[in-house]
Amino acid sequence: MVAIETDSLERRFGSVRAVEELDLEVDEGEVFGFLGPNGAGKSTTINMLLGFVPPTAGSATVLGHDAATESLAVRQRTGVLPEDFGVYERLTARKHVRFAIDCKGAGDDPDALLSRVGLADAADRKAGGFSTGMRQRLAFAMALAGEPELLILDEPSSGLDPNGAREMREIVREEVDRGATVFFSSHIMEQVEAICDRVGVMREGRLVACDSIASLKRDLDVDSRLVVEVDRVPEGIREELLALEGVSAVRIDDGEIEVALSRAGRKTAALDAVERSGAAVEDVSTEEPSLEDLFEALTTESEVAP
C-alpha cells in the first residue's frame, strides 16, 4: 500500500516554481527522508500534502485521500510536526497536548505523551517560557496524539541537541514498529542514515534522487579520496595524475597529495604514478564518500574539475 503519492505535483508562487513535476511514492510502514537544502521545495511540498497550500498543477494523495479536497480526512489520520510553528504562549504544555487529543477525538493521556517526549516535568508550565528544543518536543507530542497512521515531520530535529535528536529517532522507530509510516524532511544528511529506509532529495523544486542511501552511494559517482603523504612533491605530478582515467581532481598541499577519484578502482594506478615520479611515499590513506559528499553531489551544480 502507498501512504503518499504525488503525481506531477507543482506549486508556483508568481514566477517562482517552488515545486515542479514532483512524482513521489512513499510506502506504508516505511521511514522516508525528504532531503534538500533550505528553499529546495520540501516545506512547500509538505504544505501541499496538508492542504495549507493548494497545488497549481498535479495532485497528491495521502492515505488514499486527495490532499487538496479531502484534507480533513488526511489530517484526521496524520500526525503533523510543522515547521516554523508558534506555541500558545499562555497555555501549558498539557493544555497543548490535550487540545491535540481533543481535536483528534482520541483517548490518549496527555501526560503519557509528554513523558514520551521528555517533557513530563514541564507539563504544567506555560509554553511561552519554553526553549526551542522544548517547543519542538511539545509539537512532537501533539503530533503523536491519536496514534496516527502517518507522521509528517517537517525538520523535526531543528532546535534539538544531539541527545534530543537521538531520542526523537528512538520515538520514530517505536512509531514505525507500531505500524506507522514516517515522512520527514531535513536539510541535514547525517540524521537520516540511521533511520531512513529511503530518501528523496530535492533541489530547486525538483526531485533529483529517490532511493535507499546504499543504492544512492553505489549509483552516484561520488568521489572517493586517496591521500598520499610524500617526502617531496615531484614536479609535474598534478598534470600526470589528472591525465589518468578516473581522476577528477588533485590537490597538493605541503607534502600531501590528495587525489579525488570518481572510480574507487583507480587508486592503484594513481598510487603507482606517484611512486614512479620518484617521491618516497610515507603514508597512504583513503576516504570513502561520506553522506555529506553524497548530499552535496546531489544538491549542488556539478563543477568541472580545474
Binding site: L50, G51, F52, L72, R75, Q76, V80, P82, E83, D84, F85, G86, H96, F99, A100, C103, K104, A139, M142, A143
Partner: peptide
C-alpha cells in the same frame, strides 16, 4: 499550523 495540522 497546529490548528490546521490537526483535523480542523
Amino acid at each position: 499550523r497546529f490548528l490546521l495540522g490537526l483535523p480542523n
